[in-house]
């Protein structure tokens, strides 16, 4: 067998890392452009787009755009609203969808397959087609709160959360993952005396790490990027999320530097969330074959 010399090996590594590096740079460019531009005044920002300077923090660099963004819109409130809506939806969705999938995979009951089919069929229905009926429904739903019984959920967190907790795609991902768990583990737990609830909590969920991460990230991105629905159901600034908040910067005098500053700010939670779950996310994409 021919030995690969040290030099050949090194050359291969260099080529491999150069290619990977170029691909990485391609993906990072828009992000770099956004962040770099957020520190530039509008005139320079537009001039720089003609050259590589667009990606470099050069020229008149300042945090003025950020200060202006905060003056123009309640950025902190929008980010807070989005984090609350997204966070609560993700947590509830993980609980509800995994429990539903558990019942579909492990518990035998009449009509199970039919209902699962119906839920999976909802995957092909675009949200836009049900948005109007959903709006009508949301405007009439009852709620018992501090003011007693009221009707209509508009202008609230719950109207942005509840419709998205049960999610066909999430249930499908959990179902696929649970089907691959060895059935004997569940049977062993049953023989050992565990109830369905205990099997869910003590056996299935501790083994569901990768699919939990996948669903969490997919749900997080979908919820954080929500635009149409909050635009329809939230008229008051108090509950407005980040994407709808972007409108504040597309008024009469369009300030690109401020837009870039705002976008950089609202990207931070996404990056943090992704970095935390990155490893589990990649592992589960590799195992489920689901594209993000």
């Amino acid at each position: 067998m021919a030995m690969i010399s040290g030099d050949t090996h090194r050359l291969r590594l260099i080529v491999r890392y150069t290619i990977l590096g170029l691909i990485a740079v391609m993906f990072v460019f828009p992000l770099v452009f956004m962040i770099v531009s957020s520190f530039k005044p509008d005139l320079q920002l537009l001039t720089d787009t003609g050259s590589l300077r667009a990606f470099l923090p050069v020229g008149d660099i300042s945090v003025n755009n950020y200060l202006a963004a905060f003056r123009r819109a309640p950025v902190g409130l929008f980010i807070f609203n989005s984090v609350v809506v997204t966070g609560v939806t993700v947590v509830l969705s993980l609980l509800v969808c995994s429990a539903a999938a558990f019942a579909f995979v492990f518990v035998e009951w009449r009509g199970r397959d039919l209902i699962l089919t119906i839920i999976l069929a909802t995957l092909i229905v675009p949200f836009e087609t049900i948005a109007i009926p959903l709006l009508l429904l949301a405007s009439k739903l009852p709620w018992i709160g501090a003011e007693g019984l009221t009707f209509g959920w508009l202008n609230s967190y719950r109207v942005q959360i509840v419709p998205f907790v049960a999610d066909g795609l999430a249930i499908f991902l959990f179902v696929q993952y649970f089907k691959d768990l060895p059935g004997e583990l569940i049977e062993a737990a049953r023989v050992e005396g565990a109830s369905w609830g205990q099997i869910y909590r003590k056996v299935v969920m501790p083994l569901a790490g990768p699919v939990l991460a996948t669903v969490a990230i997919l749900k997080f991105l979908a919820m954080y990027n929500q635009y149409l629905w909050p635009l329809m159901v939230v008229q008051e600034e108090t509950y407005r999320p980040v994407m709808v908040g972007l409108q504040y910067f597309f008024q009469l005098n369009r300030a690109w530097g401020e837009i870039m500053a705002y976008l950089s700010l609202i990207t931070v939670p996404v990056l943090v969330f992704y970095l935390v779950l990155q490893r589990a996310f990649i592992a589960s994409i590799a195992s489920t074959g689901v594209k993000g």
């Binding site: 060895p182 583990l185 062993a188 049953r190 023989v191 005396g193 501790p206």
Partner: peptide
Amino acid sequence: VPPKDRRIAMVFQSYAIFPH
């Protein structure tokens, strides 16, 4: 009677011990 109330214990071919 459900399995847990039959006073039985079972050893499976795949062992079925909990990996976590």
